[in-house]
Simulated assay, not measured.
Amino acid sequence: MLVGIVAKRGNKRASFLAADIRDRLREADVEVWLDEATAGAHDESGHPVDAMDACDLVVAIGGDGTFLFAARGVGGTPILGVNLGEVGFLNALGPEEAVHEVLREAVALENGELSVREAPRLVAAGEGWESPAAVNEIVLQGPQRGRAGGVDLEIRVDGSLFSSGRADGVLAATPTGSTAYNLSEGGSLIHPDVDAIVLNEMCADAGMPPLAVGLDSEITVRLTGAPEAHVVVDGRVTRSPEPPTTVTVRTADTPVRIAGPDAEFFEALNKLE
């Protein structure tokens, strides 16, 4: 059995907890990989996060950002999230219970009893390219936010025109991501048990309200009227095609697999500011 650990960069508390979990797992004869940054803080060799799809379980220690960072590299490997602050939507564990829960999950994994829940991811694709998979959202936008940096959009769902006009961009969010960037842009909350993608235009001149569509929907966005466009996956610019260009957004083939106890959705909602 192989367990990977990814800790928040530059965070001493995360690094200390990672070392504690590493030691306890090794005492239980579990092979452990640390990501490169965490391993460097403890004077041992580490592994790139992109290689951790070889693990049976990955522990992400830090917060939702650390979870998303780990998720970009681990493929379908289950991720157990440990939040050093408030328990979030992706990280159901607090630091006080982390060591015990990781050991419990390792035993369950060894016995073939690991319970995971799956959440959809999204990918964007254009001519000759496909983006990494997004846990939260994919944003298609102009060169910058604001009236001087927008882009002309034509948005279609399964071939039917949904909206067109000038906007800062358009955001497609998973149920998990509906509580993140989408929410700050006035988008709808989606309960994690609902199979939907939220389409949300960003500061549109005359746009449509946010729309929830099925996970099997194909979203096609034509971008024109700007010197460049950006494809932003979970907050990271991954592609900058030159308009006019067409980008398709769909559900990824591999979902994110989340280990550990379920986050209580409505309790977590009450902690949003």
Rank of each mutant, 00 (worst) to 15 (best):
A28F: 04
A204V: 09
C55I: 10
G159M: 11
A226M: 02
D50W: 09
V6Y: 01
A124P: 04
S115C: 03
A108T: 01
V116Y: 04
A268S: 09
A106W: 02
G94L: 08
A206I: 01
V221M: 15
S131G: 13
P143I: 00
V99H: 11
A212D: 06
L223I: 09
G128C: 08
H191T: 07
V151A: 13
G65M: 09
P244W: 05
L140V: 08
G4S: 02
E96A: 15
L25V: 09
L80T: 06
G76M: 13
R117M: 11
L57I: 06
A229L: 03
I21R: 11
R239T: 05
S115N: 05
V107I: 10
F266S: 08
A54L: 01
G225Y: 07
A206G: 05
L25T: 12
P175Y: 08
G10A: 12
A60I: 00
R24M: 05
N83M: 08
P78N: 14
R222F: 12
R26C: 11
A14F: 00
G76N: 12
F89D: 13
D56W: 06
E118A: 15
C203W: 02
V107E: 15
A268M: 06
I79T: 02
L140C: 14
E113P: 03
V99N: 07
E97C: 10
E101R: 09
G46L: 00
R257K: 13
E31I: 05
D53V: 05
I197M: 03
S131H: 12
E31M: 14
P255Y: 00
A167H: 06
L25N: 09
M1G: 12
G146C: 09
V82H: 13
P95T: 00
F69K: 15
S15N: 08
S164F: 06
L34V: 13
G63N: 07
V107N: 01
T174Y: 01
E105G: 03
M1I: 12
G62V: 04
L211R: 08
S131W: 08
A229N: 03
V194H: 12
V170C: 12
V59M: 11
G94Q: 05
R9E: 10
A263Y: 01
V237D: 13
F69P: 00
F162C: 11
T248F: 00
V256L: 14
A180L: 07
A172D: 01
V194F: 06
